[in-house]
Structure formats: structure tokens, C-alpha cells
Design a protein around this nucleic acid. Structure first.
Lengths: 107, 107
DNA sequence: TTGACATATCGTGATATGGCGATACATTGA
DNA sequence: TCAATGTATCGCCATATCACGATATGTCAA
């Protein structure tokens, strides 16, 4: 008679609670209409805060805050060039992730 | 001299604001450690509320609320069997989306 | 230096979210 | 019918998020 503790449990998928917490935090950062749009834009090129703000229809300071949030997750890096600051994608997995999202919601 | 309105703007990717709002809402639903874990579990099998609750380490009522949220997004369907309710994946895109997340955070 | 422009940060208030206990509902078996 | 089990719902409260206006910082040009 096998005790409960020695039964094999082959079906439960892997993943530490900490990893799930991290993943959830990054997904939460991604889960905003303006931020999603910014990610999509930056996957296609390099843009300034002002350009992204205008494209998304939000004021510059709001755009700046969204970009900062995503930068903290490691999504983007920024680079000042004169008075302007250009953002670009730094997290390579963003492309595939966005492809999934586009495949589900923009087709 | 080309007017501003007739300049071509070839680089901006597609996507209506409404689509981004929908996508953001679904991602927000996904963006929770317990819910991520539940999605992962249900991509590997069919489980009851109680089973998912125990696996995630949350009380049954909390698990039930999380499952209801995800059901509203169309992620899952539920099926009562006796006193128990089994949940299962209904949204086919979840598998690929979860694969992206796992590839980034559980490897 | 001054002023204009681009971006970033801060404080605040409105709204949303998450988890909890209590309770309701549904199903089965005694 | 009653009690036990499994699930769902509700009200409450703590916290988080969001957008805004005001203000600060950094950069260039005159």
C-alpha cells in the first residue's frame, strides 16, 4: 500500500511561487492599453516620449510615467539625444509575447 | 508641397484603441500569480475548485473568485459533476501565451 | 543668462483590485 | 428532512493603480 507521500504526482507543471510572482508583475505592467500600444510601436522602431505620447493620445508626463514603469521591468532602455529621449525595446521576449497578443486581439 | 494630412505614415502598426483595451483587460486578468498558476494547471488537465485552491495555497472561496474572473474573459469553462465543479481551458490562445510566459520566467 | 522645449518627478484624489469572513446555494447520502 | 461537502456570492477594508496639475530637471539657441 503506497502512502500518500510516496504517490507519484507526474502531472503538476513546474514553477516556483516566486517565478509566478515575477511573471505576474511583468504581465501587469504590460496589461494597459497605452502601454501595449507603446510596446507595439517600439517593436517597430525607435521613438521619443513625445512621439509615443501623441500616438497614444496621452499627455507627455503620463507617457513618461508609463515608459518608466516598463523600463523598470526591463522592457525598454532609453537614450537621450539632445533634448529628446529615445526609447527602444530591451527585452527580447517582448516580440513573441506581443505576437501572441496580436494574434488573439488584432486579427 | 505635400500637406501634413497626405504624408504617408507607413510605419505605425495596426490596432484600434478598443482592441488594445480588450487585450489589456484580458492580460490584466492573467497577471496574477495564483491565476497564472491556475492557467498552467488547467493547460495540463482538468481540475476542481478545491484541487486548484489547494495547489495554489488559497482558500476555496478565493480560488472560486479567481476562476470566475477568468471565466468571464473566456479563458475557462466549468462543468458541474456531482458537488464538484471542474474547470477547463476554453481559450485556445492561452497555450501559446503561457508558453511565452514560461519561456521568459520559468527557464 | 534667459527663454523655450522635452522629459521627469511629485502630490493628490478617484477608482479598481485583492483577500477575508460570513453566508448562501447546490448536491449527495444518511 | 437533515447534515455534510463543495462551490459561489456578498460586504467590507486595505492597498494599488491611474491620471492629472504643478513643478523640477536637462538641453539647446539666442
Amino acid at each position: 500500500m503506497p502512502s500518500k507521500s510516496t504517490e507519484k504526482t507526474p502531472k503538476k507543471p513546474q514553477g516556483s511561487p516566486l517565478a509566478f510572482a515575477e511573471a505576474a508583475e511583468c504581465l501587469k505592467t504590460l496589461a494597459h492599453p497605452v502601454r501595449l500600444r507603446m510596446v507595439q510601436m517600439l517593436l517597430h522602431g525607435r521613438y521619443t516620449v513625445g512621439e509615443l505620447a501623441e500616438d497614444s493620445g496621452v499627455p507627455d508626463n503620463v507617457a513618461s510615467e508609463h515608459l518608466r514603469l516598463m523600463q523598470r521591468c526591463g522592457f525598454f532602455t532609453s537614450e537621450r539625444q539632445g533634448r529628446k529621449v529615445y526609447y527602444q525595446v530591451a527585452e527580447p521576449h517582448l516580440r513573441e509575447l506581443m505576437k501572441c497578443v496580436e494574434g488573439r486581439f488584432l486579427s
